[in-house]
Computed example of a mutant assay.
Amino acid sequence: MPLYAPSPALRGRQLAADLGLGAWLVLWVLVARTVHGAVLALAEPGRAVEDLGASVAGSMSSAATAAQDVPVVGDDLAAPFEALGSAGGSVGGAGQAAQDAVGTLATVLAVVLVVLPVGWLLLRWLPWRVQWVRAAGAARRLAAADPAVLAARALATAPLGRLADLPPGTADAWRAGDPAATHALAAVELDRLGLPADTLAGGGRPLGLR
Protein backbone atom coordinates (compact mmCIF):
# COMPACT_ATOMS: atom_id res chain seq x y z
CA MET A 1 0.00 0.00 0.00
CA PRO A 2 1.62 3.31 -1.09
CA LEU A 3 2.31 5.86 1.62
CA TYR A 4 2.71 8.84 -0.73
CA ALA A 5 0.59 10.22 -3.53
CA PRO A 6 1.83 9.97 -7.13
CA SER A 7 0.89 13.63 -7.60
CA PRO A 8 4.01 15.80 -7.03
CA ALA A 9 2.02 18.55 -5.30
CA LEU A 10 0.29 16.32 -2.76
CA ARG A 11 3.38 14.15 -2.32
CA GLY A 12 5.36 17.30 -1.56
CA ARG A 13 2.87 18.28 1.16
CA GLN A 14 2.98 14.77 2.61
CA LEU A 15 6.77 14.73 2.66
CA ALA A 16 6.84 18.22 4.20
CA ALA A 17 4.43 17.07 6.93
CA ASP A 18 6.52 13.97 7.64
CA LEU A 19 9.76 15.93 7.77
CA GLY A 20 8.07 18.54 9.94
CA LEU A 21 7.03 15.87 12.40
CA GLY A 22 10.59 14.53 12.50
CA ALA A 23 12.03 18.00 13.05
CA TRP A 24 9.45 18.67 15.79
CA LEU A 25 10.49 15.44 17.53
CA VAL A 26 14.21 16.29 17.31
CA LEU A 27 13.54 19.82 18.62
CA TRP A 28 11.72 18.62 21.71
CA VAL A 29 14.25 15.86 22.37
CA LEU A 30 16.97 18.53 22.40
CA VAL A 31 14.86 20.74 24.68
CA ALA A 32 14.22 17.79 27.00
CA ARG A 33 17.94 16.98 27.16
CA THR A 34 18.77 20.58 28.01
CA VAL A 35 16.13 20.72 30.75
CA HIS A 36 17.23 17.33 32.08
CA GLY A 37 20.81 18.53 32.42
CA ALA A 38 19.75 21.82 34.01
CA VAL A 39 17.58 20.09 36.60
CA LEU A 40 20.30 17.57 37.40
CA ALA A 41 22.54 20.50 38.32
CA LEU A 42 20.21 21.01 41.29
CA ALA A 43 21.50 17.71 42.68
CA GLU A 44 24.93 19.24 43.45
CA PRO A 45 23.93 20.44 46.97
CA GLY A 46 22.64 16.97 47.74
CA ARG A 47 25.89 15.47 46.49
CA ALA A 48 27.85 17.88 48.69
CA VAL A 49 25.73 16.95 51.71
CA GLU A 50 26.27 13.26 50.99
CA ASP A 51 30.04 13.77 50.75
CA LEU A 52 30.05 15.78 53.98
CA GLY A 53 28.05 13.11 55.79
CA ALA A 54 30.37 10.38 54.53
CA SER A 55 33.42 12.38 55.61
CA VAL A 56 32.02 13.03 59.07
CA ALA A 57 30.98 9.39 59.45
CA GLY A 58 34.47 8.21 58.41
CA SER A 59 36.26 10.64 60.71
CA MET A 60 34.06 9.81 63.67
CA SER A 61 34.48 6.10 63.04
CA SER A 62 38.26 6.49 63.12
CA ALA A 63 38.03 8.60 66.27
CA ALA A 64 35.78 6.02 67.94
CA THR A 65 38.24 3.25 67.09
CA ALA A 66 41.10 5.24 68.57
CA ALA A 67 39.08 6.10 71.70
CA GLN A 68 38.30 2.44 72.32
CA ASP A 69 42.01 1.80 72.75
CA VAL A 70 42.07 3.99 75.85
CA PRO A 71 42.17 1.71 78.92
CA VAL A 72 39.15 1.54 81.25
CA VAL A 73 37.17 4.45 79.74
CA GLY A 74 37.64 3.58 76.07
CA ASP A 75 34.05 2.51 75.49
CA ASP A 76 32.67 5.62 77.18
CA LEU A 77 34.96 7.84 75.13
CA ALA A 78 34.05 6.07 71.88
CA ALA A 79 30.28 6.39 72.39
CA PRO A 80 29.99 10.11 71.44
CA PHE A 81 32.13 9.58 68.34
CA GLU A 82 29.99 6.62 67.32
CA ALA A 83 26.85 8.75 67.74
CA LEU A 84 28.36 11.52 65.62
CA GLY A 85 29.37 8.94 63.01
CA SER A 86 25.79 7.65 62.93
CA ALA A 87 24.51 11.21 62.52
CA GLY A 88 26.96 11.76 59.68
CA GLY A 89 25.62 8.62 57.98
CA SER A 90 22.06 9.96 58.30
CA VAL A 91 23.14 13.27 56.76
CA GLY A 92 24.76 11.40 53.88
CA GLY A 93 21.56 9.39 53.37
CA ALA A 94 19.53 12.60 53.24
CA GLY A 95 21.90 13.95 50.61
CA GLN A 96 21.50 10.79 48.53
CA ALA A 97 17.72 10.99 48.85
CA ALA A 98 17.81 14.59 47.62
CA GLN A 99 19.86 13.50 44.60
CA ASP A 100 17.41 10.69 43.83
CA ALA A 101 14.46 13.10 44.02
CA VAL A 102 16.17 15.56 41.66
CA GLY A 103 17.05 12.74 39.25
CA THR A 104 13.45 11.54 39.22
CA LEU A 105 12.18 15.08 38.63
CA ALA A 106 14.64 15.59 35.77
CA THR A 107 13.56 12.35 34.09
CA VAL A 108 9.84 13.08 34.47
CA LEU A 109 10.22 16.59 33.07
CA ALA A 110 12.24 15.30 30.11
CA VAL A 111 9.64 12.66 29.29
CA VAL A 112 6.77 15.13 29.59
CA LEU A 113 8.56 17.65 27.37
CA VAL A 114 8.83 15.04 24.62
CA VAL A 115 5.51 13.19 25.01
CA LEU A 116 3.14 16.17 25.25
CA PRO A 117 4.19 18.32 22.26
CA VAL A 118 5.09 15.36 20.04
CA GLY A 119 1.92 13.52 20.99
CA TRP A 120 -0.14 16.65 20.28
CA LEU A 121 1.26 16.91 16.76
CA LEU A 122 1.15 13.15 16.19
CA LEU A 123 -2.58 13.10 16.95
CA ARG A 124 -3.06 15.55 14.08
CA TRP A 125 -0.54 14.09 11.65
CA LEU A 126 -1.36 10.40 11.98
CA PRO A 127 -5.13 10.55 11.21
CA TRP A 128 -4.43 12.72 8.17
CA ARG A 129 -1.82 10.30 6.81
CA VAL A 130 -3.82 7.16 7.63
CA GLN A 131 -6.97 8.68 6.15
CA TRP A 132 -5.20 9.37 2.85
CA VAL A 133 -3.70 5.86 2.69
CA ARG A 134 -7.09 4.28 3.28
CA ALA A 135 -8.91 6.63 0.90
CA ALA A 136 -6.32 6.16 -1.84
CA GLY A 137 -6.50 2.38 -1.50
CA ALA A 138 -10.31 2.45 -1.67
CA ALA A 139 -10.22 4.83 -4.64
CA ARG A 140 -7.85 2.52 -6.53
CA ARG A 141 -10.18 -0.42 -5.98
CA LEU A 142 -13.23 1.58 -7.03
CA ALA A 143 -11.43 2.96 -10.08
CA ALA A 144 -10.86 -0.58 -11.27
CA ALA A 145 -14.23 -2.03 -10.27
CA ASP A 146 -16.86 0.73 -10.04
CA PRO A 147 -15.80 4.24 -11.13
CA ALA A 148 -19.42 5.40 -10.92
CA VAL A 149 -19.02 5.58 -7.14
CA LEU A 150 -16.05 7.90 -7.55
CA ALA A 151 -18.08 10.00 -10.00
CA ALA A 152 -20.93 10.32 -7.50
CA ARG A 153 -18.53 11.35 -4.75
CA ALA A 154 -16.95 13.95 -7.00
CA LEU A 155 -20.36 15.48 -7.72
CA ALA A 156 -21.11 15.60 -3.99
CA THR A 157 -17.78 16.86 -2.63
CA ALA A 158 -15.58 18.36 -5.37
CA PRO A 159 -15.07 22.15 -5.38
CA LEU A 160 -17.51 23.94 -7.66
CA GLY A 161 -14.67 25.51 -9.60
CA ARG A 162 -13.24 22.07 -10.39
CA LEU A 163 -16.62 20.81 -11.56
CA ALA A 164 -17.12 23.94 -13.65
CA ASP A 165 -13.95 23.06 -15.59
CA LEU A 166 -15.62 19.90 -16.91
CA PRO A 167 -17.30 19.95 -20.35
CA PRO A 168 -20.89 21.24 -20.25
CA GLY A 169 -23.47 18.52 -19.75
CA THR A 170 -21.08 16.15 -17.93
CA ALA A 171 -23.47 15.63 -15.02
CA ASP A 172 -26.43 14.92 -17.32
CA ALA A 173 -24.30 12.53 -19.36
CA TRP A 174 -23.22 10.76 -16.15
CA ARG A 175 -26.83 10.36 -15.05
CA ALA A 176 -27.59 8.88 -18.46
CA GLY A 177 -24.81 6.33 -17.91
CA ASP A 178 -22.25 7.78 -20.33
CA PRO A 179 -18.88 6.04 -19.55
CA ALA A 180 -16.88 9.09 -20.69
CA ALA A 181 -18.74 11.36 -18.26
CA THR A 182 -18.34 8.79 -15.49
CA HIS A 183 -14.60 8.67 -16.11
CA ALA A 184 -14.38 12.46 -16.23
CA LEU A 185 -16.04 12.83 -12.84
CA ALA A 186 -14.15 9.90 -11.35
CA ALA A 187 -10.91 11.52 -12.54
CA VAL A 188 -11.82 14.62 -10.52
CA GLU A 189 -12.05 12.55 -7.34
CA LEU A 190 -8.82 10.73 -8.14
CA ASP A 191 -7.10 14.06 -8.73
CA ARG A 192 -8.23 15.24 -5.29
CA LEU A 193 -6.44 12.24 -3.80
CA GLY A 194 -3.35 12.84 -5.90
CA LEU A 195 -3.95 9.74 -8.05
CA PRO A 196 -3.53 9.76 -11.84
CA ALA A 197 -6.53 9.40 -14.14
CA ASP A 198 -5.01 6.27 -15.68
CA THR A 199 -5.85 4.52 -12.40
CA LEU A 200 -9.33 4.14 -13.92
CA ALA A 201 -10.21 0.92 -15.71
CA GLY A 202 -9.38 1.50 -19.33
CA GLY A 203 -6.88 4.22 -18.36
CA GLY A 204 -6.39 7.67 -19.68
CA ARG A 205 -8.16 10.97 -19.20
CA PRO A 206 -11.40 11.26 -21.15
CA LEU A 207 -11.46 13.49 -24.20
CA GLY A 208 -12.87 16.93 -23.59
CA LEU A 209 -11.76 17.03 -19.93
CA ARG A 210 -9.77 20.17 -19.34
Rank of each mutant, 00 (worst) to 15 (best):
A63R: 04
A63Q: 12
G88R: 02
A164C: 03
A54I: 07
A57T: 01
R47F: 01
L193M: 05
G37C: 04
G37E: 04
A136F: 13
V133Y: 04
P206T: 08
R129I: 00
A181F: 10
D69E: 12
A67F: 08
L209M: 14
P45I: 09
L42D: 10
T182S: 11
A173Q: 02
R210T: 12
H36D: 14
V29G: 05
T107K: 08
D69S: 15
D178F: 03
V130C: 11
A180E: 14
P179T: 02
S90Y: 10
A23H: 07
G93C: 00
G137L: 11
G74D: 10
A79S: 12
A106F: 04
D75H: 14
R192K: 07
V39W: 09
G208Q: 00
T107L: 14
A110S: 13
A98M: 11
P167M: 06
V108M: 14
L52K: 09
D51T: 15
L10V: 09
L185S: 07
V130R: 11
G208L: 01
R11Q: 12
S86L: 14
L160A: 15
G208S: 06
V35Q: 08
A151G: 13
Q14S: 08
V130Y: 11
L21R: 00
D51C: 12
A139L: 01
G92K: 00
L84F: 15
L113M: 13
D198W: 04
G22S: 05
A173P: 02
A186E: 01
L207M: 01
P196F: 03
R192C: 00
V39H: 10
A110N: 03
W28R: 06
G12D: 08
V115A: 15
T107G: 14
Q131D: 13
L122A: 15
L126R: 13
D165P: 00
A158F: 12
A38P: 03
V72T: 14
A152P: 02
P179W: 01
H183I: 01
R140E: 14
R129S: 06
A139Y: 02
D191K: 06
R134T: 09
T65S: 15
P167A: 13
V72R: 08
D178M: 03
G58M: 08
S55P: 00
W174M: 13
R124F: 10
L122F: 15
A156Q: 10
L15P: 01
L126G: 09
A97H: 10
D146I: 01
A16D: 04
D69R: 15
L30W: 04
T182M: 10
P117L: 09
A151Q: 03
G46E: 03
A180H: 03
G208E: 04
T104H: 12
S61T: 15
V108N: 06
A138H: 05
A144P: 00
D76N: 08
V188A: 04
G103E: 07
D18V: 10
A63G: 11
A135G: 03
L200W: 01
Q96D: 10
A38H: 08
R13K: 13
T157A: 15
V111I: 15
G46H: 06
